[in-house]
């Protein structure tokens, strides 16, 4: 099964880049895995995932209901309700998937979505806040184990 680990975020905005850092950490340990990173969403990243069987997406999230550094897991279904495109520059991941599917390209049949709870995404810095930075090794290991990436 051809798997892609896609880290999303912005590595110069403190915690926003945590998804990319986790993806990089996974790559350090699992050399055979394809990883990709993008500071964009929706349509701007869709080309990256065409042709894979499985997609593991890692991003940041701010629910405000968990400790920074906590790992959340979502199903793709949970994002289907974001149909209204309020973001004026891009479309949601769900919309992007639908379009590409209609287009006839091969999309991953299995999608796992992880998101790390973060606290600061508006200060320019290449380092995450302490709790988030500290959580990166554990989170990457957890994803490797859960997804059996280390083969």
């Amino acid at each position: 099964m051809k798997t892609l680990v896609l880290g999303l975020g912005n590595t110069i905005l403190t915690d926003d880049g945590v998804g990319i850092k986790v993806a990089q950490k996974i790559k350090e340990k699992c050399k055979n895995i394809d990883i990709s990173e993008a500071s964009a969403a929706g349509f701007r990243v869709i080309d990256e995932i065409i042709g894979y069987d499985k997609l593991i997406l890692i991003d940041s999230i701010k629910t405000g209901k968990a400790e920074p550094g906590k790992l959340h897991k979502f199903t793709f279904e949970e994002f289907k309700k974001t149909r209204h495109h309020a973001q004026p520059h891009d479309i949601s991941l769900f919309e992007a998937f639908e379009i590409i599917k209609q287009h006839g390209d091969k999309l991953p049949s299995e999608i796992e979505i992880y998101a790390v709870e973060v606290s600061d995404t508006s200060t320019l810095s290449e380092t995450c806040t302490m709790k988030v930075e500290a959580a990166i090794p554990k989170i990457s290991q957890k994803i490797i184990d859960e997804q059996s990436l280390f083969k």
């Binding site: 209204h84 973001q87 520059h89 949601s92």
Partner: peptide
């Protein structure tokens, strides 16, 4: 105007209510 707002952060496209 297609305004660029946040110009940067990319947290998950979760619920986007108006």
């Amino acid at each position: 105007y297609d305004p660029c707002l946040a110009c940067a952060t990319h947290s998950l496209p979760g619920k986007m209510p108006l």
